[in-house]
């Protein structure tokens, strides 16, 4: 069995498992897993840039936010339905990531991280500045009656779970496929040795640009999905913390692996969920995990498994 077939089976098996879980999980965990799948979609988007292309962004919350506010504002003030508003959200995220990429990709390394951080900070402040529409930190709620696609009620828990699964599966399969074609190999080439890749005749800038746009648009899709499935749009989701989260999830799960983003998000979500029952300083866990990963497991969970036991893991 070739590696390509194995990884396709792995992904389809994972999706099938998640599908079955929709009907067996108790409602509390069903709700959690729906949320985790949407956030893991965000992590998958982040992984395209960080894991595969080797560019560490500290500003992805602006893309998540572009999707979230693109959809939220289009529904709230434009009166659009879910599907057209989702398209608006994707366009917002794609345009924003293209503009940011054109500027930020002129820098490398630490400067790239800080430039993305600054752009995201400007984005967060912009949301606050237009508080009359965005309701700032307080945010706004998307009416339950509007959250429907062709008669399907997205507020109904199982429907919502399955919608989240569709979003997650699309992102997973698209990125997995992307990494099987030569475009993906070139991204890895850029990550491993940019100058060598250029001197093999690849346009490094255009590949990086495409990576930022794909990454930003998937992140935006996750933001839009979050807004419509959980009915809330707020400035917190554009703050620095939400730029750090996908980095944390991807690092924990395994950068540059297809299922790492889900694994990382799942672990971190439940870690924070349990610890927030014990203390209000639950972000302490995030800090400790980041430090431990930096010191002892740079490859993340799936990355370490791949290195030690299962070399074919995609």
């Amino acid at each position: 069995m070739s590696i390509g077939t194995r990884s396709t089976l792995l992904h389809l098996g994972l999706i099938a498992l998640l599908f079955v879980l929709a009907f067996v999980l108790p409602s509390y965990h069903q709700g959690n897993l729906a949320r985790i799948m949407v956030l893991a979609t965000y992590a998958i988007g982040y992984n395209v840039l960080f894991g595969y292309t080797g560019l560490l962004s500290l500003g992805h919350a602006m893309f998540f936010g572009a999707g979230m506010y693109g959809l939220g504002l289009a529904m709230q003030y434009g009166g659009l339905g879910v599907i057209p508003a989702f398209v608006v959200a994707l366009i917002c995220a794609a345009v924003l990531s293209a503009v940011v990429a054109m500027l930020a990709l002129r820098t490398i390394g630490v400067a790239f991280m800080i430039v993305t951080l600054m752009f995201a900070q400007a984005g967060y402040l912009t949301v606050l500045y237009f508080g009359a529409w965005t309701r700032g930190d307080e945010g706004f709620v998307i009416a339950q009656s509007a959250r429907q696609i062709a008669g399907l009620d997205l507020t109904q828990p199982t429907t919502r779970y399955l919608a989240a699964l569709v979003l997650f599966s699309a992102a997973l399969l698209i990125t997995a496929r992307m990494m099987q074609v030569s475009f993906g190999s070139v991204l890895i080439g850029v990550r491993e040795n940019e100058e060598r890749t250029r001197m093999l005749g690849y346009d490094v800038f255009r590949h990086k640009l495409a990576a930022v746009i794909i990454s930003g648009t998937i992140s935006g899709a996750a933001g839009a999905g979050y807004a419509v499935l959980f009915g809330y749009v707020g400035a917190t989701f554009t703050s620095v913390q939400y730029s750090i989260f996908p980095l944390l999830w991807v690092l924990l799960g395994g950068a540059g692996t297809t299922i790492g983003p889900l694994v990382g998000t799942l672990f971190m979500f439940y870690l924070i969920d349990y610890s927030s029952g014990l203390t209000n300083a639950y972000m302490l866990i995030a800090g400790v995990v980041l430090v431990l990963l930096t010191l002892f497991a740079r490859l993340g969970l799936v990355g370490e498994i791949r290195k030690r036991w299962v070399a074919w893991l995609p």
């Binding site: 080439g189 491993e192 005749g201």
Partner: peptide, 29 residues
Amino acid sequence: HARIRRGMAYTFQITAVYARLSLADNLAL
């Protein structure tokens, strides 16, 4: 990269191969 596309190839003085990829993956690129 555009010159390479037109038919030049360049090998580095200081070895610049993809150390963390297999030889076959290096050649695929």
